[in-house]
């Protein structure tokens, strides 16, 4: 474990927020990191926020110890199909999912710790040509599957033991759903972004497809990260992995867009672009509350305040190489930054 202070880039002559390196963990048995996340782990009456790291063939759970050290509690071996991503289940203890596959997701597995018999287990939740998956509040999991012309969008509820409790089929749009986001504060509302750049809205209780709204042609293949309703408008945070540089917005990474679900009309509210002087474009990222983080093609990590629309911190590629992964822990107060060699750095933001 190490501790130190990294000074973020100075923007507009101001020192904005800072990222403070809190600790570092490295899985010596893993050579290539695929994803990183957090999970609440509870045993013997105590509950702790643990770090989860994934490499191609296994997923490890790390428990915090004193003095910013970490202990590996367990490693789930996942067999021959490679891990593609961790699918956290927010507000859930001792349960998470992982997506496995070759080029596309072919399987979703549940990884769990059973307090009853103090054992770690795994089980299959879903198999198919899965295009998108998201863990929702209250141990629910939504996914979209496509086989030829047919698309299936389904939500399953998981019991504490990991068994499938019940499910709800959601009416699929014609186009392929590429990402989902819960509408915060509305338990039954879900949004998705599609391959032809539309936002769709579902009622999770009835399965109804309530509305389809076009995002606009300027930003193709948008991915939704966060959605909330305020004053009768639906606000959606989108990332634009394929966006081109424009005069008005520079090189955009995230945009906050407001939609009126009654009329299906939308308007851009704020655009968060790559900081001036940063070459390349958005590669992958994460959003928590009003904070967004992304790995850029330059190998740097950039952090934005989505309400101000500007970059607040920048982590240049380290001496060991480029950053590969950037995720918020359960709150945006803690950033998990991963390198391909399996090193995960925790920063206080």
């Amino acid at each position: 474990a190490g501790a130190g202070q990294l000074t973020p880039a100075l923007l507009d002559g101001l020192r904005e927020e800072s990222l403070q390196l809190v600790s570092k963990l490295k899985d010596s048995s893993s050579s290539c990191a695929v994803d990183v996340s957090t999970m609440w782990w509870g045993a013997a009456g105590s509950k702790e926020l643990c770090v989860v790291t994934a490499c191609e063939s296994s997923v490890s759970l790390w428990k915090p110890l004193a003095s910013d050290h970490w202990e590996k509690l367990h490693t789930w071996q996942l067999g021959e199909i490679p891990v593609i991503q961790i699918v956290p289940l927010p507000d859930t203890c001792n349960l998470m999912c992982v997506a496995l596959g070759d080029l596309e997701i072919g399987e979703i597995r549940l990884l769990l710790y059973s307090t009853e018999n103090d054992s770690f287990k795994q089980s299959l939740v879903k198999a198919g040509n899965i295009k998108a998956v998201l863990g929702l509040q209250e141990r629910r999991l939504v996914s979209s599957c496509r086989t030829g012309q047919e698309q299936q969008v389904e939500m399953v509820s998981l019991a504490e033991t990991g068994r499938n409790k019940d499910g709800q089929t959601l009416m699929p749009p014609e186009e392929t759903v590429l990402a989902f986001a819960e509408v915060e504060g509305m338990r039954e509302a879900l949004v998705g972004t599609t391959a032809v750049n539309s936002i769709v809205v579902w009622n999770l209780k009835t399965g109804q497809l309530l509305k389809k709204m076009h995002i606009g042609c300027s930003y193709l293949a948008s991915i939704c990260h966060r959605a909330y309703s305020d004053s009768g408008l639906l606000f959606v945070v989108l990332s634009h992995p394929h966006a081109k540089e424009s005069e008005s917005c520079g090189s955009p990474a995230f945009r906050l867009v407001a939609f009126n679900p009654r009329t299906a009309r939308g308007a851009g509210v704020l655009c968060s672009s790559l900081p001036p002087g940063q070459a390349g474009r958005y590669l992958e990222g994460d959003v928590q509350d009003t904070s967004a983080v992304a790995v850029l093609t330059s190998g740097a990590i950039a952090v934005w305040d989505l309400l101000l629309g500007h970059c607040t911190a920048l982590l240049p590629p380290g001496p060991q190489g480029s950053w590969a992964l950037a995720r918020w822990a359960t709150s945006s107060a803690c950033l998990l930054a991963g390198q391909r060699d399996g090193t995960v750095c925790l920063y206080r933001y």
């Binding site: 009416m171 509305m186 039954e188 509302a189 809205v201 009622n203 009835t206 109804q208 497809l209 309530l210 509305k211 309703s229 004053s231 009768g232 408008l233 639906l234 407001a258 939609f259 009126n260 679900p261 009654r262 009329t263 009309r265 939308g266 308007a267 509210v269």
Partner: peptide, 23 residues
């Protein structure tokens, strides 16, 4: 963005759209 850009706004959009959408 103003109401004129986005059209008439309803605070109960989710309930209204759920009542109108096909089951």
């Amino acid at each position: 963005c103003s109401e004129s850009d986005l059209g008439p706004i309803s605070l109960n959009w989710f309930e209204e759209l759920s009542a109108e959408a096909p089951p």
